[in-house]
């Protein structure tokens, strides 16, 4: 978790997408989508299935290059940069279907996340250079701190796939945080979690924001989205349908008819009142 920049930067978007389009064969997955992500806030990306949410995440992480349009992290143009380069620039992600390193322990998973923050190469490791062992000690210390942060420190030596499903989600978040991101992309972080775990997740996401990391989550759990988001983007058929605060989104007629549905309106007002 990097400390976010000084006050004057606060108004610059940390992540900016300009007129992104992407089609797969005849299907227009994204059509001229532009939006800006303000630093230090929690953003949610919602929309019906097939609206292009995951494609948009993949455009940001670089695993799916856009046909047209540009993406920026701060002032840095992302187009043409490979996924691993974007991680060192400060974009981290978690996966919808958890992708942990199954042969490794919980701690080692987080240590892999420190890859971009460490330098030791083939020869350094083989020669056992003092710089490498110092770096390794620091990485371990940081990994323990992060496990502590997500509440998994006691399971550090477990094999990662032995963790219960919900904990694996938290581990994935710790691992992503280990890369020291400016922006953390979460692909459906609450799916498969029970209500208790979801509320723990909610608290965790707020704590991450307090540490200066900007969050962008794709999520279907509307209670979670409306409760924690500072701003919500709605995608439909690959196009931006709306962009606003949770209250504005819940009052938006177009969003209600396309996605939220009329019957959900009643229950949502309480979240809005907070």
């Amino acid at each position: 978790m990097n400390a976010q920049g000084s006050g004057q930067e606060a108004f610059l978007p940390v992540l900016r997408l300009e007129e992104i389009s992407r089609s797969f064969g005849g299907i227009q997955a994204l059509n001229d989508v532009s939006f800006e992500v303000a630093p230090g806030a929690i953003h949610a990306l919602i929309g019906p299935n097939g609206a292009g949410k995951t494609t948009l995440l993949n455009v940001i992480t670089g695993s799916c290059p856009p046909d047209t349009g540009a993406a920026f992290l701060g002032d840095c143009r992302l187009n043409g940069r490979k996924p691993h380069e974007r991680v060192s620039l400060g974009i981290a992600r978690t996966f919808q279907n958890i992708e942990l390193f199954g042969s490794m322990t919980v701690l080692e998973n987080v240590l892999v996340g420190r890859h971009v923050k460490t330098r030791c190469g083939f020869f350094g490791a083989m020669a056992g250079l003092p710089g490498c062992s110092l770096e390794e000690r620091k990485a371990r210390q940081r990994a323990h701190e992060l496990l502590d942060f997500v509440g998994l420190s006691e399971a550090a030596d477990w094999r990662s796939t032995d963790l219960p499903f919900g904990w694996q989600r938290f581990l994935e978040i710790a691992r992503a945080l280990a890369t020291g991101p400016k922006v953390l992309l979460l692909d459906e972080p609450a799916s498969g979690l029970n209500p208790v775990e979801t509320s723990t997740l909610c608290d965790l996401l707020r704590k991450i924001r307090e540490n200066g990391v900007t969050l962008l989550l794709v999520e279907h759990d509307m209670n979670l989205v409306m409760e924690i988001s500072d701003r919500v983007f709605v995608l439909n058929h690959g196009m931006k349908l709306a962009d606003g605060t949770p209250c504005e989104i819940q009052a938006n007629e177009a969003v209600i008819s396309a996605y939220l549905g009329r019957e959900r309106m009643g229950g949502k007002c309480s979240a809005c009142a907070i």
Binding site: T61, A92, L100, G102, S103, V112, V116, F122, E135
Partner: peptide, 19 residues
């Protein structure tokens, strides 16, 4: 660090590159 990265590739190349 290199050894861990190698094992990460073995386990999930997609996740490894996202790290």
């Amino acid at each position: 660090r290199i050894g861990r990265a190698l094992r990460a590739i073995h386990d999930s190349e997609r996740a490894a590159s996202s790290m």
